[in-house]
């Protein structure tokens, strides 16, 4: 098994000098995923934080073949690359095996890109789709997305005297992906590089499409100190808000079960987007948040225990 030291010692596909925000976890996510590939990697990257900050003209931070594409088509372009690659390989024009990885943010995955994602997963292209999930349209200034959690303040669902912010729970994108009967779908978080690496390894060895959702706390729009990204990523897992789990051939396996689950307040406090929830009149929303988290966690435990295929 690879250690943290092994992973961070590998050459980084994303070169230093990119323009991601101070404290952003995206580079660590991207580097540890690509490090898990023992074959050359081709990256298809949807418009979003990663693309905008890694390719400011005339520079590129990418040390691997990389293509930028429309907001909604990372999975479609990856499917096109995979199809062309297979055809060329069949005709003997390419010898090497490659891994094709698509990266999209949550807006480009949960919302505008879900059609292309669903199509590619259903057709069974052999590629890995990664969503770095910062829970909103962060590149355009914190608009709500299908991944934005309950109670968060965003610029298009602003919290105020009459609103607690977003009132819907987020979509379960991992289960949506797994429902396509793909061999591997998993959830990881920015702070646990070893877990990300191991999941990417499994995903890339799957014979078919694989999906990986990685939580990426956003210092700019979750509004916390830039030194605390990994702390918030860890708290998301320890409160069971963002469980680390995988669905392998339909079977759920939880990778980490906190000995004592921390109350959701520990994850919420200190984040500017949740400050309003701590007002006395909004405390009920924190309780509702907690019960949503507990309900989802219990459901996940049951899925794992039952051993039933999703």
């Amino acid at each position: 098994m690879a250690t943290y030291q092994d992973i961070v010692s590998k050459p980084t596909p994303l070169a230093p000098g990119h323009r991601m925000c101070a404290g952003c976890g995206i580079p660590a996510i991207v580097n540890s995923i690509i490090a898990a590939s023992d074959k050359p990697v081709i990256v298809a990257n949807a418009t979003g934080c990663l693309e905008v900050t890694s390719t400011i003209y005339p520079f590129s931070a990418w040390n691997v073949p990389w293509v930028h594409l429309t907001f909604e088509n990372a999975a479609a372009v990856a499917a096109g690359i995979e199809t062309a690659y297979k055809a060329l390989k069949k005709r003997g024009k390419i010898k090497d095996d490659v891994n094709i990885i698509a990266f999209g943010g949550d807006g480009g995955t949960y919302d505008i890109g879900i059609q292309a994602l669903s199509g590619a997963l259903e057709r069974g292209h052999r590629f890995l789709y990664v969503v770095y999930d910062n829970e909103g349209y962060m590149n355009t200034g914190n608009q709500r997305s299908g991944a934005t959690p309950f109670g968060a303040d965003t610029t298009t669902v602003p919290a105020g005297t009459k609103s607690i912010g977003k009132t819907q729970w987020r979509k379960n994108i991992v289960e949506i992906s797994a429902a396509h009967r793909i061999p591997y779908a998993a959830q990881a978080a920015a702070h646990n590089v070893v877990d990300i690496y191991n999941k990417a390894k499994k995903a890339l060895s799957a014979d078919g499409p694989s999906f990986l959702a990685v939580l990426q706390p956003c210092t700019t729009n979750w509004k916390y100190d830039t030194a605390l990204t990994m702390k918030y990523s860890k708290l998301a897992v320890e409160t069971n808000f963002w469980p680390l789990y995988e669905i392998e051939n339909g079977k759920v396996h939880i990778n980490y079960k906190p000995k004592e689950r921390k109350p959701i307040e520990e994850f919420l406090k200190g984040q500017g987007r949740y400050r309003h929830l701590f007002k006395p009149e909004n405390r009920y929303a924190i309780e509702e948040f907690q019960s949503l988290v507990d309900e989802e966690w219990e459901r996940l435990l049951k899925l794992e225990e039952s051993g039933a295929k999703l």
Binding site: I112, T140, P158, K162
Partner: peptide, 19 residues
């Protein structure tokens, strides 16, 4: 609407004012 620069201020403004 839907987020896209350089008009994000338009939906953001509506999100506050319409309610």
């Amino acid at each position: 609407g839907y987020p896209i620069t350089p008009q994000n201020e338009t939906p953001e403004y509506f999100s506050r004012r319409m309610p």
